[in-house]
């Protein structure tokens, strides 16, 4: 068995046996091929359910505030960044957390497979190769071909906060964030861009999977659920859908950690990330801020300083 999985299980076993935590939140094998599912382990006897591979696509950080007691979490880079923001925003008590950090090479984007071989009947992952048996045919992929778009631009594959690191760390080139995808979108004409988002927004069914999968969408009352004032109707059309999606993105300004959980959760394949990425770029350009890269600091829009680049933003008395 893979050493990382073994170490995760042993760590979980110890933490639970010694009573240091009440629950370990990680991943187990899902019911569908190439699908892992979040797993809550409460006793040392069940730790062998835990797995780790390229199918562990959910961001687990969102579960923590809703889970009582002391908890351990298996965290990849993006989960840890979400934890950092949650800690900065006082949503979690650090002492109640044990972060089992694992470096991540990225997760699989299943949609690419489905489009080519239909429903997946069986699949296996071996040495960076993914063999898929589908209803419309079989195919072997290299992991790099199936890597989720988010993971392709990921700068933080290693957890930014952790209590224990399992496995190797991944070398990352020290360079400024690249936003080629955003630039491409910015270079489109207004009408092209409008067409693109019209199509994307017409797919949205307002199931709120994006919001609920997001580790940082934790408002007690989401603006879409508020009926006094009623910001938007339940109407499922492009305009209302865009209002929801754009509103959500703006609420995540300076907070979004670009984990891609929203886009992966969307059952309709809406390119939610296109909006998030533009906002992430703007925050970087305006505030030189990347969200959740350490436990210290605050989200970009929570910081007020006399040195703000915007003149007269705060004036010293």
């Amino acid at each position: 068995m893979n050493k990382i999985i073994n170490d995760i299980r042993e760590t979980a076993r110890q933490l639970l046996a010694e009573g240091k935590v009440d629950v370990v939140i990680g991943y187990e094998k899902g019911s569908l091929p190439l699908k892992a599912t979040p797993c809550f382990v409460h006793s040392p006897e069940s730790v062998d359910l835990l797995i780790w591979d390229e199918t562990c696509e959910n961001n687990l950080a969102g579960y923590l505030a809703k889970t009582p007691g002391k908890k351990a979490i298996v965290a990849k880079g993006c989960d840890s960044r979400a934890l950092a923001v949650l800690l900065q925003e006082n949503q979690l008590v650090r002492d109640d957390l044990y972060i089992i950090g694992v470096s991540c090479h990225g997760v699989i984007d299943q949609r690419k497979i489905g489009a080519e071989v239909g429903e997946i009947l069986e699949a296996s992952i071996n040495d960076g190769k993914i063999s898929v048996k589908g209803m419309e045919g079989d195919k072997e992929y290299l992991f790099t071909e199936l890597k989720d778009a988010t993971c392709q631009t990921c700068r933080y594959p290693n957890p930014v906060i952790e209590d224990l690191h399992i496995g190797e760390t991944i070398e990352v080139a020290q360079e400024a964030p690249a936003f080629a995808d955003v630039t491409e979108m910015e270079n489109k004409s207004n009408s092209e861009r409008q067409e693109y988002f019209k199509e994307q927004m017409s797919k949205c069914i307002r199931c709120y999977a994006c919001r609920n999968a997001c580790p940082l969408c934790y408002c007690q009352e989401c603006f879409v659920d508020c009926n006094s004032p009623k910001w938007l109707t339940g109407g499922v059309n492009r305009a209302e859908n865009l209002f929801f999606q754009a509103g959500r993105v703006l609420h995540l300004a300076g907070r979004c950690v670009d984990c891609g959980a929203c886009t992966r959760a969307c059952p309709q394949g809406v390119d939610i990330r296109a909006l998030n990425r533009k906002m992430t770029k703007d925050v970087y350009v305006m505030f030189n801020h990347e969200s959740g890269i350490s436990e210290e600091g605050k989200p970009a829009l929570n910081e007020y300083s006399a040195n703000d680049p915007e003149e007269q933003f705060l004036v010293k008395e």
């Binding site: 979040p38 199931c207 999977a209 609920n212 109707t233």
Partner: peptide, 24 residues
């Protein structure tokens, strides 16, 4: 525990039929 409480299952279900009535 692992359910995130979204509406995907209900909206994609051929038999789910719960609704809300509101005034616009």
């Amino acid at each position: 525990e692992k359910c995130i409480g979204c509406n995907v299952c209900s909206f994609s279900c051929p038999t789910c039929h719960c609704f809300d009535i509101s005034e616009e």
